[in-house]
Design a protein around this nucleic acid. Sequence first.
DNA 1: GCAATACGCTTGCATATGCAATTATATAGC
DNA 2: GCTATATAATTGCATATGCAAGCGTATTGC
Lengths: 148, 148
Amino acid sequence: MTDTYTSNALRLLQVADDFRAGLSGEFSAVHGISVNEFLMLLHLERSASNRLSRVELAKRMHVSASTITRMAAPMEKIGLVDRETDQRDARLVFVVATDAGREKLSEALATFSKRAGYLFEDRLENQEVDQFASMLRRLIAGTGDTLA
Amino acid sequence: MTDTYTSNALRLLQVADDFRAGLSGEFSAVHGISVNEFLMLLHLERSASNRLSRVELAKRMHVSASTITRMAAPMEKIGLVDRETDQRDARLVFVVATDAGREKLSEALATFSKRAGYLFEDRLENQEVDQFASMLRRLIAGTGDTLA
DNA sequence: GCAATACGCTTGCATATGCAATTATATAGC
DNA sequence: GCTATATAATTGCATATGCAAGCGTATTGC
């Protein structure tokens, strides 16, 4: 009934949901941002020119463009991101992280790494951690994402 | 800056988000249910007595109890689940899958498995699939979940 | 037994998000 | 150059979800 592929996909969702749920609580309490706001800042930092258009962010984050518009508004208000326009294409409105945004990302990333440690250490051998990384890279390949 | 634990956690979230996003579209279009409704039906089927209280479902699905109450209402209306009360504890309201609910789960599970195949085949060697399963099992251990 | 506390569920309110329509701008075909 | 089409962003509306309060039921301490 449930082959290994299916079991793996179910477990993948479970592990990810569990990790995200724990992260969500600590992010909200300690850093005052949501997991998605953290991921937006991370996508910005990992992008070539430190800025991304709304549709590009939407694609990378698996959310709609309207969600990006609505996420960016309060983040602009508290100074985590700013908006820039394109010289050539007046339709584009880039989201760009401010210094405060990068600082916030840095703090949140420390929390993220701490929890990543809780997740993996004592559960996987050192060698397995690298194998796991190799496999995840291949599972991501082709989706266009390049966060990690 | 980003150690292997951190990279792995980021990739884990990305792969899971990507898989869930694709699944969401096909579930909605083909089966008329959401991924969370699918997972609720799956939790029910995998439970010992084919039924679970709202708080127990909430814990296993990483959502609030109120979400379970609000998810169950329309599912009762379309006949996928039913409600049962406990003889000893009048506070408990169990969610139990109907025949139609189990049938819907079976159909959706076929779609899920198909997509799980797309995700893993041609990306991992057969031996790696089993290693991946072993590692995911250990990452889940302790969270109380037992879906896969 | 009774009062205090804990637990399960539901509901009001606030927030988050997707889809479709709208507007503004670019690009393609001619 | 002009028109038709495509793309980016925003906004209205509907749905989904969490938190805290409220209500009913169990359990605990005495």
